[in-house]
Amino acid sequence: MIKLIKNEWIKIFARKSSYVYLILLVVFLFIGAFAYDKLFHVIGGAMTEVAADGSSTATEEQPSVWNFLNTVVLGITSFVTLFSVIVVSQNISAEFGDGTIKQLLIRPYKRWKILLSKYFAVNLYSLLLLIGLVAFGFIIGSIFFGTGGFHKEIVTGGLFSDAVKTTTEGGQFIQTFIYYLPGLILINTISFMLSTLFKNQALAVGVGIFVLFISSTLSGIFTMLLDRYEWFKYLIFPNLDLTIYTYDDTVNGMTVGFSFTVMVVYYLLFMIITFYSFQKRDIVA
C-alpha cells in the first residue's frame, strides 16, 4: 500500500502544474503581504492624525504575523481548496482519459487498494498545499510585520448573534485552521467521487469547481431559508464550512458538533458511492 501511495505521489509531482500551484500560493502571499502592509500604513497614518488631535485615545494598531495569518493567509486558503479540487479531479479522470487506468488495474492489487492509494495521495498533496501556505505565510508575515502578537487579545463574534467572545490572535488562527480541515477533506472527497463517476477530465474538473463555487453561494441562500425549512440544515451546503463557528458558537441554531456530524455522514456516503462504483465498474476506456 505504501508503494502504491508512493507511485501516486510521484505521478502528482511529475506534472509541472503541481509545482505551479505551490508557487502561485507563495506569490499570492507576497501580494497579500504588500497590500496588507500598505493598508496599515494608510490606516495607521489616519489614526495618528486623529491621535494628534487629542480627540481619540485609540492605541495605534500594529499588524503582527499572527494578525496577518488570521486575515490574509486564511483568505488565501480558498485557493488551496480550489487547487486541491483541480488536482483531485484530474487525478482519476486523467487515468481514464489517457487509458492508463487499464494498465494500472491489471496489477496484483485489488481495485479498492489502488483507488484508496490515490485518495490518500491527493489528500496528502492538498495538506501539503495548506501546510506550505501556512509555513510560507508565517515566514513572509514575520519578514513584513515581525514576529510576536500570538497572545494579543481580540474580540470576535456578533456575526450571527449578539454574543461576543474574547480570544487571542494565535488561538483564533489555530482554531480556524483546525476547523478548515474537515471542509477541505470533504470537498476533496466530493471531487474525487465526481471524477470517479464521470471519468471525463474536463467534466470532472468543471463540475468540481462548480460545486466549490456554488456551495459558497448556496450556503448563503440556504442560511436565509433555514428559518423557514428546518430540514435544510441536514443538507451538505450549510455545513461545509466549519470556520464560521470560530466567530459564533451557534449559527442559525446549528453548532460545530452538529455540522461536523452531518459532514461525517455525507463523507461516509460519498466514500461508499465512490468505492462501490469503482469496484463494480467495467473498464472500457
Binding site: 505521478k11 511529475a14 506534472r15 509541472k16 489517457d98 487509458g99 492508463t100 487499464k102 494498465q103 491489471i106
Partner: peptide, 14 residues
C-alpha cells in the same frame, strides 16, 4: 500475468 490492453498507454509526462 502481463498485458497490453488495446493501445500501449503510458504516463506521457514521465
Amino acid at each position: 500475468l502481463g498485458a497490453i490492453v488495446e493501445n500501449p498507454e503510458f504516463y506521457k509526462y514521465m
